[in-house]
């Protein structure tokens, strides 16, 4: 279905199409949760897949938890930026959005105390810090790659990462 022309390698084309078909609905849903606008959610998903296209080599296993988390991180970041652009005077509370997610996280990870703790700690970071933190530590991206994916400068990546670390270390001490 998708344009074949955009890919030099058959394998890349297949991977991209697979990711697109498998995750487009979820990504749209995540973007829509933030933007509350069908067309803007589509724009966010479209932009997210373009960034995936540019970093396709980073995706080792399209079915893994890491991959889906990676895609969601990207689309959320784009959606938040679109939201800010659209509602300059009304900053979105991303933490609130994460916490009122329709999925019942507590039920899902009730038996996993440690994981639950990890999630609750990281969810206390705002989305800007969280996405940089996850792309760095969970997806092993360089500062340069993170900057490109999130459309921010490398310096900004460094600053956000520093803040995320500091905040998390502080939260962990409190726990």
């Amino acid at each position: 279905m998708l344009i074949i022309l955009a890919f030099d390698l058959e394998a890349d084309k297949n991977t991209f199409e697979y990711l697109y078909e498998k995750y487009k609905r979820l990504l749209w849903s995540k973007a829509f949760d933030i933007l509350k606008d069908h067309a803007l959610a589509e724009d966010a998903v479209s932009e997210a897949f373009i960034r995936v296209y540019r970093h396709l080599h980073k995706i080792k296993d399209p079915d893994s938890n890491q991959t889906i988390a990676f895609l969601v991180t990207i689309v959320k970041n784009i959606a938040i930026n679109l939201y800010h652009r659209k509602n300059k005077s009304l900053p979105v509370d991303i933490n609130e959005h994460d916490q009122v997610d329709s999925f019942n996280l507590e039920e899902f990870i009730a038996s996993k105390e440690e994981a639950s703790q990890a999630i609750s700690l990281i969810d206390k970071l705002n989305e800007d810090l969280k996405s940089v933190f996850l792309l760095k530590y969970a997806h092993d991206l360089s500062h340069k790659e993170i900057g490109k994916i999130l459309n921010i400068s490398e310096n900004n990546v460094t600053v956000r990462l520093h803040r995320a670390r500091k905040k998390l270390m502080q939260l962990m001490k409190e726990v």
Binding site: N65, Q66, I68, E114, I119, I122, Y137, L168
Partner: peptide, 11 residues
């Protein structure tokens, strides 16, 4: 911590 988070949220 990040890997745990990604695994759980990914699932």
């Amino acid at each position: 911590l990040a890997l745990q988070y990604v695994n759980e949220t990914g699932a």
